[in-house]
Amino acid sequence: MADTLAPSSSPEMGGAHGEGAHGPDQGTKRDFLKLAAGSFAAVGVGAIVWPFIHSMNPAKDVLALASTDVNLAHITEGQAVTVMWRGKPVFVRHRTAQEIQEAETVPLGELRDPQPDSARVERKPWLVVLGVCTHLGCVPLGQRPTDARGDFGGWFCPCHGSHYDTSGRIRRGPAPTNLAVPEYSFTSDTQIRIG
C-alpha cells in the first residue's frame, strides 16, 4: 500500500537508494523485479475490486424474478389496469377502435421516436407499456378515467409535462423516447404473461 505511494510522493528517495549506490545493471534488475511485482500487485488489487462491484449488480434471485400474469377478461374496452412487474408499474390498456385508429394514422414523420403502432402491440386492442416516463422515471397519469391524459389521449406525465399518445409514444415534452414495451406474450385469448 505504502509502496504504491512511493513513486508519486518521494521520487527523490528512490533515486538516492538504488542506482546511486550500485552499478547500473543491478539497478535494471531491481527495476524489472519491481515492475513485475508492482504489476502483479496492481492486477491483484484490480481483481479484488470486481467482486465488490459485481455484488451490487442484480442478484440471481432478482434476475429470475417471476413473470407476472395478467387476466384481461375483466378489462372492458376503454379501461386500463396497472400491474406490478419487476417492481415497476406496467400499463395494460384495452384500446377503443378510435384510439387504435388515432395511433395507426399518425404520420411517422411527426414523431420524435418514430415507431409504427404495429411494432408496439401484439394484438391491436391491447397496449402494454412500462408505466415509467422515459424522461426521469415518474409514473404518467392516464390510467384512471378521471386522469388528465394529455393532448394526445394517451398519458400525461405531471412531473415535467410529457405527453404520450394512445400507442404510448412521446409527442410533446422533455421525454426523449416512447414508453418502453416489456417482453410479453399471450398465453390465452384473455391472459398475457409479462417477462
Binding site: F52, A59, K60, D61
Partner: peptide, 10 residues
C-alpha cells in the same frame, strides 16, 4: 451465499 454475485466470497 446463494444469489448475490460473489456473495459467498464476501
Amino acid at each position: 451465499m446463494r444469489d448475490v454475485n460473489y456473495g459467498w466470497l464476501i
